Amino acid sequence: MFDWIRRPARRGHFAALDHADFPAFEPGSVWLVGAGPGGPGLVSLLAYHALGQADVIVHDALVAPDLLAMAPRRAQKLFAGKRGGKPSPKQADISLQLIDLARSGKRVLRLKGGDPFMFGRGGEEAGALARLGIPFRIVPGISSGLGGLAYAGIPITHRDTNQAVIFLTGHDESGAVPGGVDWNAVAHAAPVIVMFMAVKHLGSITQKLLAAGRDGADRLAIVSHAATPDQSIIETTLAQAHVLSEVPTPAIVVLGPVSAYRQSLDWYVGEARRHVFG
């Protein structure tokens, strides 16, 4: 269904870095592109190429303004952001917008924070395009669950602590805590759990994990505004996380021993920083 590659593999040498050797961004097509976790320098060369070729950019709320500023002035910019607790466009309407723009002959860049296929609804948007035969390309991005934590000095895997990790979303389509999650299984499946969009329901999620038998002394870190000058980090424990208030968002939450590596790997200094542990 999502077999979108229809061309031979390109030559695997440094000529591929030449702008002219990138795939053509054809009129009437849609590129779903990951914008990375925050800083505009964390996009791929192919994403940068798409930004310069697009006729219209349909972008999320979390896409950095500095990244949008790299687009040519002729490119139309359309906001399609979703933020918890605020009026947001419906997913079906965003997909229809992409379809209409492509059918009008535009080069449509759907610019999404992080990676389009990591809790980014990219699969739904690509599916809508595929069903109507609209050409599309997926350009992966650096997920905040990887790059955002790296900017906080937190490796999500380390051979001294864990060989597995779970990625979890903190809310479902309705905005509530996901009802289909087997919390008993999640609590014990991996030493490290990385949670996206979990701040709103963090108290409920932590209580479910504790009730399932997860150790309340487990380290928990929250990285807000990752990879930007406003990055801040809160460190606490699973048992104490419910008392936190006014946690800056967007944020990524990591539960498990890997946040201890911040003591030696905390390399990025943001303009705003907050530390709590206890």
Rank of each mutant, 00 (worst) to 15 (best):
A54G: 04
Y268H: 10
L149M: 05
W4Y: 14
V30E: 03
V254I: 12
A47Q: 01
G81A: 11
A150Q: 05
D115C: 01
Q97Y: 14
R83L: 11
R131V: 14
A251F: 02
T228R: 07
R262N: 05
P40A: 10
H19C: 09
R274Q: 12
D160G: 11
A69D: 11
V243K: 11
F119H: 02
L238V: 08
Q231N: 08
A241E: 01
A187R: 04
L210V: 04
A189K: 03
I166N: 10
T237C: 03
G203K: 00
D182P: 03
P135I: 09
A260L: 11
R262K: 09
V269T: 13
E173S: 13
V194Y: 00
G145A: 07
E246V: 06
I94N: 06
A152M: 05
G133F: 05
R83N: 14
S29I: 07
H19Y: 10
F167T: 01
W31M: 01
Y261M: 11
H49M: 03
G203P: 02
F79S: 14
Q91A: 11
A24N: 15
G81D: 10
D3S: 13
L45R: 14
N162V: 07
P8Q: 11
T237A: 02
F117A: 05
L202I: 06
W31C: 01
E26L: 15
Q163N: 14
I94C: 07
R262T: 03
R219M: 09
M197V: 04
T236C: 02
G179R: 12
A102I: 09
V177P: 01
